[in-house]
């Protein structure tokens, strides 16, 4: 019984939040890794692209709510999501046309594009704050829990409860669907394969008749969709705040690099590695150990390795350790 209780506590405070957070990071890292694979630079504006897409979803959700449209137990944001994705795609395509394309024609070195993406970051950052303001937005509605602590206790008779929030459930389900779709697209369709080919060997792709502009177009469309989905899921699970999204850049980059930049499978693995290490290392283990250890050994302190304020430090430390031992990341990077 004690073991089961410990397991429930562990699931409630570590496993489930980490899986949800990991899915969100993975989706974000996929966007970064795709840009890196195909356009060959790290997009510093990715966090703000996520913020922009999510902002659209938030605004449309508010609009739907004012119209009285809802999805019943599910959050209205799911209904708004396609519109948000569409809007984000438009912005990203406009950015590519107005900004990035010129540098491709100049055959600019990737690091120039990195600096360009800083400029785009500034603009998007300002744009989002200009439209929706810098404050927290809570836009999750519908049923709060799939299963609540009380229900779980009644169901199992255990003294510890387990809660699964709707947003956590939706995050995981959506992430699985999106990742499955993406991998099907990249591995099974002609366009997807041409994207992988272009990422692998730009010259040879050109000689094979693959049109780079088309590849780039599809990449941006997919990245916009991934960014909006990742941002919306994160916002539903927590809240939407522009600055937080900007800060997500670090764990997202860390996830993409840990997994191996340019490798989508790596981005997903990296997302979960980062999420799990962040959550486990900053979790206070006292409650779990209380059930597992004999009474006289029960820890007096919280048994928290590092305070939650240092979660960035955790993702960063994991990153450094991985890079020291596997410089190309867990999965061999640089190939979509």
């Amino acid at each position: 019984m004690d073991f089961l209780n410990a397991l429930v506590v562990l699931s409630n405070f570590v496993l489930i939040p980490a899986v949800a957070y990991g899915s969100q990071l993975a989706l974000g890292a996929l966007g970064v890794t795709l840009i890196y694979g195909i356009l060959r630079f790290s997009n510093f504006a990715h966090g703000d692209t996520m913020a922009f897409g999510t902002m659209l979803v938030v605004l449309i959700t508010y609009l739907f709510q004012s119209w009285g449209i809802s999805l019943g137990p599910l959050p209205t944001a799911l209904l708004a999501l396609p519109f948000g994705i569409l809007g984000c795609m438009l912005l990203v395509l406009f950015t590519d046309r107005a900004v990035y394309r010129f540098y491709r024609q100049q055959k600019a070195k990737p690091v120039v594009l990195v600096i360009v993406s800083m400029g785009v970051m500034f603009i998007m950052n300002g744009l989002v704050r200009f439209i929706i303001g810098p404050n927290d937005q809570r836009f999750a509605d519908g049923e709060r829990f799939i299963i609540s602590v009380r229900e779980f206790k009644q169901l199992t008779g255990l003294s510890e409860g387990l809660a699964i929030r709707t947003t956590q459930g939706i995050t995981v389900v959506t992430a699985i669907i999106v990742v499955a779709l993406l991998f099907w697209f990249l591995n099974r369709t002609r366009t997807g394969k041409s994207m992988r080919a272009y990422s692998d060997n730009e010259d040879l792709a050109l000689l094979s008749g693959i049109n780079p502009e088309r590849v780039v177009l599809y990449t941006w469309l997919i990245v916009a969709a991934l960014a909006t989905v990742a941002g919306t899921l994160y916002g539903l699970d927590k809240t939407f705040k522009p600055f937080t999204y900007f800060q997500l850049l670090l764990p997202i980059f860390a996830a993409a690099i840990v997994g191996g930049l340019g490798n989508p499978l790596g981005a997903i693995a990296g997302g979960f590695v980062i999420a799990f290490s962040e959550v486990t290392i900053t979790y206070a283990w006292k409650k779990v150990l209380k059930y597992l250890l004999p009474e006289n050994l029960e820890p007096s302190s919280l048994m928290q390795l590092i305070s939650t304020d240092y979660k960035f430090a955790v993702s960063f430390a994991i990153l450094v350790i991985v890079l020291l031992f596997k410089p190309t990341g867990l999965f061999k990077g640089k190939s979509v």
């Binding site: 970051m121 500034f122 603009i123 950052n125 744009l127």
Partner: peptide
């Protein structure tokens, strides 16, 4: 009026992009 504070972010971005484009 509330958004004015964020115009400087956009302006900075635009300045950077313009310089990178026309006077790299």
């Amino acid at each position: 009026k509330d958004g004015v504070a964020y115009m400087r972010l956009m302006t900075m971005g635009i300045v950077l992009l313009l310089v990178l484009r026309f006077s790299p």
